[in-house]
Design a binder for these strands. Structure first.
Lengths: 201, 201
DNA sequence: GTCTATACTTGGATAGAC
DNA sequence: GTCTATCCAAGTATAGAC
């Protein structure tokens, strides 16, 4: 395994375990069994490494989200897909890393714009997915996809913060079950023809 | 102004501006124009001070939320009230402080349980407010107040993270306008008699 | 209760040997 | 490209004068 990769993996691991405030060059090196000087040789500094790590997890998860979500055409399917991938995220720690980086940006303002650039694709992705399934509905949804997408990303970040704080995923799980149930309900009410309610009709 | 109070205010100010990672004893002292040693004399350590600061902002905001929300009986009123107080929060920075403390807890595990104890009252408060207005509706809402409350608190935290990151409150504003509109719609649809739709009926 | 001084630790960063 | 050694800045914490 290449050194650059090992450093990035160690950085991700440290961000997940110790948060932004606990992710020092020395801590990362210890986690990865690496020499601390390598971080500066390969990345120039800790913040640059953290951005590279964010890129890595973001790309990885985005590919996975596309796999799961791109085929989806109905609201209940989208909810089910979102719940499934988010469960993976809680384990993979991707959103934890994102949340820590966003919170940490306050102490290193130069990170702000860089992180913004890495968050926007996620809001765009959510917007497109939402637009796709709501376009399929026989009614006009009174929530612009753009706003719904912002809310969903915010909600995911907040759930991650609370779930990790409480060390308990049960509330998040219940929320996703609830969402799936609601989406199915909505689909049944407004447009059985395009939803999974096809069997019912 | 008493020293303890000045230290707490400086700690809040620093948390808002520089985040958890940037909130050192020295930084707090500089912000408050205080001697750094006073923090240890009065609070024993930085983390203890931060918890005291969280108590302070939490108590202050909780009193305000109670003022605004306790009289509310309908869903649209609750949405309007929530939007109004949350706008204050974005300015007062209360939720910013909370989000930073939660994110920072990963680097100081002993903070975790203490912060949990300070977050729970907010979920309970939201649950009670939601339960009150949904009990007034003529239909049974398919979302347990407990789950809705968890989602709302998570959403607030996430919106704060994104809003502060982007340095732009417009998306949050639009979301609250949207929420108010939706709540009014729901009230009109399911139960004009108990909502502000009284005039319409 | 407050300030100065200081001890000690941790973190970012680099020079230079290998 | 990697490791050792090291410098310097920043952080926590305390002792002791005032």
């Amino acid at each position: 395994m290449e050194t650059r990769t090992r450093i990035v993996e160690a950085a991700l691991e440290t961000l997940k375990r110790d948060g932004f405030a606990g992710t020092s060059a020395r801590a990362i090196a210890a986690v990865g069994g690496l020499n601390q000087a390598l971080i500066f040789y390969h990345f120039g500094g800790v913040n640059e490494l953290l951005l590279a790590a964010l890129d890595e997890t973001s790309d990885r998860r985005m590919a996975r989200y596309r796999d799961v979500v791109d085929g989806v055409q109905t609201l209940p399917e989208l909810m089910a897909a979102a719940a499934a991938v988010y469960r993976e995220d809680l384990e993979s720690g991707h959103i934890k890393v994102l949340a820590e980086m966003i919170a940490g940006a306050s102490s290193a303002p130069e990170l702000g714009p860089e992180i913004v650039r890495r968050v926007e694709p996620w809001i765009d992705f959510a917007r497109d997915a939402i637009a796709r399934v709501t376009d399929g509905l026989p009614i006009t949804v009174p929530v612009p996809a753009e706003d719904a997408a912002f809310a969903i990303v915010a909600l995911f970040l907040g759930i991650e913060l609370l779930t990790h704080l409480e060390g308990d995923t049960s509330r998040a799980e219940r929320l996703f079950d609830l969402g799936s149930g609601l989406a199915t309900m909505v689909a049944l009410l407004v447009g059985p023809a395009t939803g999974p309610a096809k069997e019912v009709n």
